[in-house]
Amino acid sequence: MDYGSETLSDLIRSLARLPGIGTKTAQRLALHLLKADDEEAEKLGNLIASLREKVRFCKACGSITEKEECAICMDPSRNREIICVVEGPQDVLLLEKTRHYKGLYHVLHGVLSPIDGIGPENLNLAALEQRVKSGEIKEVIVATNPTVEGDTTALYIAKTIEPYGCTVTRLARGLPMGGSLEFADDMTIASALERREKI
């Protein structure tokens, strides 16, 4: 579409390429920025410009940081014998919110998916093996999503890591806390039934 401005058209096209944003939303965002006060648009522009420059991935765990290592990896109070493996940085935030986990993390940045051409070499897996090899780690908890890909990635991790004598566990899937059977969907109930445990 001709917006009468090359710059505006380019911005809309760029925004529309972002995940979850269609042409209509991109158009609305661009026009909003055009009308917004100078500060707002400029701030956003600067943030985007410095994003790639300042934000990086922790060299130990792959989580988000602005330093060499992330705050969790540098925290001396964390338990260095346990690693929780997650698919993405957003999962670290979710687990941290619970305030229940005191170990370290390892971010894979994806899951195995041959359909998308993603093999072990495309994920942050070699670094995980290195961490386990160093000997300090006693348990690896795999917290990938319960999908075909997440489960297979968990299997791959178990296969590569168990030879080092480290325990590999998987997050349990079952009924939500405080939720009665009545409100759980049949897939959850079926899974909880299959993974039932002894009282």
């Binding site: 041959p114 051409g117 489960d151 791959y156 296969k159």
Partner: peptide
């Protein structure tokens, strides 16, 4: 996924990984 792995994966272990699911 298994069919894609059969076509792409370099080593047999990567192919058989999808057998379990």
């Amino acid at each position: 996924q298994r069919n894609a792995a059969l076509k792409l994966a370099a080593i047999p272990e990567e192919r058989s990984l999808w057998d379990r699911e």
